[in-house]
């Protein structure tokens, strides 16, 4: 399958972007060749700087992401989404003009408008961290079982971290630099989401939740986390 992607040039990004290069969008990526080109191109309509952390993909994800205009950092082997996020954090921190980061999924489930709204709230000084939540309104339609697992996960996270969130395992977040500097994700796998919340809670950073729309396409459902894996995630959390 060859999808011909038009090269996304920098001038185009400059026309559409905000002009101020203070935001990095961090996309953890693992074998997403069929969607990553479109995802990067879309993100670049609203943000200037995108880094895809390719986690040892065995397909053409890295090349397609670079072709679409993203910077690509490549793990030599698959480490997991949490490890990829921490790598993206350190990459963004190496840019002294970075003030805000957004974490964004590579599988096309997130909306650009939501990310823009979240960064605006950071810039307005509303909080240090904006968490996306799919449970603040009725737009996202996870399956019943998935919703149950996510509710259980956020219940556990709230219980163990003294935070009050409605959706802790959401890949869409926006974080200010001072908080980012103090984060250190050690959970390589999917349990990093709770770890991140716990660290932000321990830092006593201010946070708000932002309603986001998570698309459940057939593609994302086929590729996403199985319910069985949620048992592994729970074990990682408890045994840590």
């Amino acid at each position: 399958m060859t999808v011909e992607q038009p090269a996304y040039t920098l001038e185009k990004a400059e026309q559409t972007g905000s002009g101020v290069r203070d935001t990095w969008v961090i996309i953890p990526m693992f074998n997403e060749e069929s969607v990553i080109g479109d995802v990067v191109a879309q993100v670049l309509t609203a943000f200037d700087q995108v880094v895809c952390v390719d986690d040892g993909s065995t397909d053409r994800s890295a090349a397609l992401a670079a072709h679409a205009g993203a910077r690509v950092v490549r793990h030599p082997l698959n480490l997991g989404q949490g490890a990829a996020l921490q790598t993206g954090f350190e990459y963004a921190l190496a840019d002294p003009s970075m003030q805000y980061i957004v974490t964004f999924d590579a599988d096309g489930q997130h909306q650009i408008a939501d990310a823009v709204g979240m960064v605006e709230r950071l810039k307005a000084g509303e909080a240090d961290v904006v968490f996306g939540s799919r449970f603040l309104d009725e737009r996202s339609k996870p399956s019943f079982a998935k919703a149950m697992v996510l509710r259980a996960a956020v219940g556990y996270t709230n219980f163990t971290t003294h935070t009050r969130l409605t959706d802790a395992h959401n890949g869409l977040r926006a974080i200010r630099r001072p908080v980012l500097e103090k984060l250190d994700i050690t959970q390589n796998g999917m349990a990093h989401a709770s770890e991140l919340v716990a660290q932000i809670g321990a830092l006593k950073a201010s946070y708000v939740e932002h309603p986001v729309h998570i698309l459940y396409t057939d593609y994302s459902k086929a590729k996403g986390q199985s319910l069985w894996n949620s048992i592994n995630i729970l074990a990682d959390l408890i045994l840590r």
Partner: peptide, 26 residues
Amino acid sequence: ARRLALDEAGPPQLAQAGPPQQESPH
């Protein structure tokens, strides 16, 4: 692995220098 990946990618500021220089997807 992270150290390797970050060293190989180079500093992020280079991203502002011009259009992406990475290999072609083909």
